[in-house]
């Protein structure tokens, strides 16, 4: 029982990342009808927003402290971040410590503008082109974005720690009456899960309860009719593209403490997220979220030693296997609408 619970918890954080990326992919596909292979790159750009902010905050000047010496006997050079000099060591240190959560504020405008630029500059010219062309051009774009990041940040993973107070782990088992130290769950993963739920809830609420969201949903159902009613649906879809980019970016920002970001993290997630979208059903938002969590948890179950003993290597292929089975038996995915991209 406790083992099962532990695997479910372990699957949640990866599942959250899948769900967030898949949600963005589905938003783009559902609104613009574009298959965006560069979505993983957006996730990666988000993660590097966090890295950039960390770099900015720790931007330092050098002073010479005469009262202390380094091991060679020269006066010690002290690096003080500007932030600490301005706000005092206490507040400044806290700001630096909290750079990842702060990066959310930084990433939202950045990612939305990147999304706008992408949609206006490139994607809009591909509405009418075949899906294969869309895949190809966004695939090219993903390579370009990835290489640009590699040029500026290097090829090695860059550690971006979570704030001090979230670095420990929660003994989850005690809360449920198990023995101590049976189910231990790092705080940050819990934060990530809650964050993902908030974002997902926010996107759904936005689509469900605002007039803007209503129009977008109407546009997803029948674009032409909405256009005939005199609504500039293209502009709203561009906004949705920006939102989808921001969702992917935020998923990336918050993921940095779990896995140190490197330039190809997006591609690694992209392939899996596509599989998630297909399993959930092309164009179905709840399907994408459900499939994201489901596959994340399945993956973590498959990596249990007991399972691996029976089926060696299953943890490596479980997601793809599920995708193949789903595509062959139920092509529209778990929650896909009848008739959407079914052939």
């Amino acid at each position: 029982m406790d083992a099962i619970l532990l695997q479910i918890l372990n699957g949640l954080d990866k599942g959250s990342a899948y769900a967030l990326i898949a949600l963005g992919l589905t938003l783009i596909f559902g609104t613009l009808g574009v298959v965006n292979f560069a979505h993983g790159a957006l996730f990666m750009l988000g993660a590097f927003c966090a890295v950039t902010l960390q770099r900015i905050l720790t931007f330092s000047f050098e002073t010479v402290d005469d009262s202390r010496t380094d091991f060679l006997g020269n006066p010690l050079k002290v690096e003080t971040p500007y932030v600490e000099a301005w706000f005092g060591p206490q507040t400044g240190g806290a700001i630096i410590d909290w750079s990842v959560p702060l990066a959310i504020l930084f990433a939202i405008p950045v990612m939305i503008s990147i999304g706008f630029a992408m949609e206006r500059g490139l994607i809009r010219h591909f509405y009418k082109r075949p899906h294969a062309d869309q895949i190809l051009v966004t695939f090219g774009l993903a390579i370009v974005l990835q290489e640009i990041v590699k040029y500026f940040f290097g090829a090695n993973p860059i550690p971006t720690p979570a704030p001090e107070s979230f670095r420990g782990a929660l003994d989850f088992g005690i809360l449920l009456g198990f023995d101590p130290n049976v189910i231990i769950y790092p705080y940050w993963r819990l934060v990530y899960f809650l964050f993902a739920m908030t974002i997902i809830g926010g996107v759904f609420a936005f689509l469900r309860y605002t007039t803007f969201g209503m129009v977008v949903r109407a546009g997803m159902a029948d674009r032409e009719t909405v256009g005939l009613l005199g609504i500039d649906i293209d502009r709203r879809f561009t906004v949705m593209f920006g939102i989808a980019a921001a969702v992917a970016g935020l998923a990336g920002v918050m993921y940095t403490p779990i896995n140190a970001p490197n330039y190809h993290m997006g591609m690694d997630f992209l392939v899996l997220s596509f599989v998630v979208v297909v399993v959930g059903g092309m164009g179905s938002l709840p399907g994408a979220v459900l499939a994201g969590f489901l596959l994340g948890i399945l993956e973590s179950f498959a990596s249990m030693n007991e399972v691996k003993a029976i089926l060696p290597g299953i943890d490596q292929i479980i997601i793809y296997l599920v995708a193949i089975i789903i595509l062959l038996t139920r092509p529209r995915g778990l929650m896909g609408r009848r008739g959407v991209m079914e052939e």
Partner: peptide, 20 residues
């Protein structure tokens, strides 16, 4: 399957082979 589903299926098979 055809279209994008075909692309994703072949991708899934290739990744499976790679991982295995």
């Amino acid at each position: 399957r055809s279209g994008i589903y075909f692309s994703i299926l072949t991708l899934a098979f290739a990744q499976m082979s790679f991982n295995l």
